[in-house]
């Protein structure tokens, strides 16, 4: 039975739905579809050998990145984990250069030196994909310290997975953010598995994380991470609070990845029924259906968006394919910033 608070939230979300402009809603859908198509293209090019290394796909979690990042402005920083393509695209990183980075090409975001797990675009204050689990927490604290110190008005959104909550840096950074009143929104993408370990095996304290955060005197809430409008609304509330009152907030998004941890994952640790249950909540399916049933969009408009996105992705693959490899001389570049 839904609690009174949950009913109230639902009502808020309903109001939110009607208050958003059509263009905003279409853009939320377009971004989610873009990420999905990007990830499918990555998988295809991984099997072709064009993308190498470890490849962690964001399929299933699109609503979390898109809903939350839509609430940010260009003063705000983002740090995230190694499953970072979705956040990068939602932040508006160039699709061609992102794909080229995965192909290891000189036209990539990091000239082919970073790869899938290390996406960066400092101009958009997208400060990485971080591949040591939990390493991004302290970085987020420092970026937030700079925002606070320079009084830029910016905040930091720190994305992390449930697996990272058992690292010391998680607890240390929650503590530091609280005592220094750092403007950080911690967004937990709780997809129930840290690689192949389900949270009920590796976590004391149950499957909800946000309830434990009160220990650090940080306001925390939970939202359905498969509902892009709910994520957007919950993020907006948290972001507004941080901008107005300072200090950190915490948002737990319940979500699920439909695919393996990486492309090397046989998924022996979970049942197909569970995957199917979550696939029925696929935001890429549900959200456009709702948009059509609510009369916000018709099938033709939807098809047009889909077609454009597919072309954009194909273009990015073509761009990455036709781009050059970095020169050998690049090996020794970008290690130090040279000064006079």
């Amino acid at each position: 039975m839904a609690t009174l608070k949950e009913e109230k939230n639902k009502k808020n979300i309903k109001n939110q739905k009607s208050s958003l402009e059509k263009t905003e809603m279409l853009d939320l859908y377009r971004q989610m579809f873009l990420i999905r198509q990007f990830e499918l293209a990555c998988a295809e090019n991984y099997t072709k050998g064009n993308v190498r290394g470890f490849l962690h796909l964001y399929i299933g979690q699109e609503a979390t990145a898109v809903g939350s990042i839509s609430c940010l402005n260009n003063k705000d920083y983002i740090v995230t984990h190694y499953r970072d393509h979705g956040h990068a695209l939602a932040r508006g990183l160039d699709v061609n250069r992102t794909m080229a980075e995965l192909f290891g090409k000189k036209t990539g975001l990091s000239k082919g030196k970073g790869g899938s797990m290390h996406l960066f675009d400092s101009a958009r204050k997208f400060m990485g994909g971080h591949a040591i689990v939990g390493a991004q927490f302290p970085l987020a604290a420092g970026l937030a310290l700079a925002c606070q110190y320079k009084e830029t008005g910016g905040i930091v959104v720190c994305f992390f997975g449930d697996g990272s909550t058992n690292q010391g840096t998680y607890h240390e950074t929650l503590n530091l953010a609280s005592i220094w009143k750092l403007p950080i929104l911690f967004i937990l993408e709780n997809n129930k598995y840290g690689m192949g370990s389900s949270i009920d095996k590796v976590r004391a304290g149950g499957e909800d994380f946000y309830t434990g955060v009160s220990t650090y005197d940080i306001p925390a809430s939970q939202v359905n991470g498969m509902d892009v409008l709910a994520v957007k609304e919950a993020t907006k509330l948290a972001v507004d609070k941080i901008r107005k009152e300072g200090g950190p907030s915490y948002l737990e998004c319940k979500t699920f990845r439909f695919v393996g941890h990486s492309l090397a994952d046989g998924q022996k640790y979970r049942k197909s029924e569970e995957v199917k249950f979550w696939e029925r909540q696929d935001p890429i399916e549900k959200f456009p259906k709702w948009l059509i049933s609510a009369g916000i969009i018709n099938q033709k408009e939807l098809d047009e968006i889909n077609q454009k996105v597919k072309e954009e992705i194909q273009n990015s693959v073509d761009f990455a394919t036709s781009s050059e490899n970095p020169e050998k001389s690049e090996l020794n570049e970008d290690i130090y910033e040279m000064q006079d």
Partner: peptide, 28 residues
Amino acid sequence: SNRIKDTPISEATFIGAGIGAAAAGLRP
């Protein structure tokens, strides 16, 4: 105390916070 910041005993985190602050233009 804005510039001379006592930290908790959390070496990983205050070193990392220094890195983040530096990446955003401070000189910690």
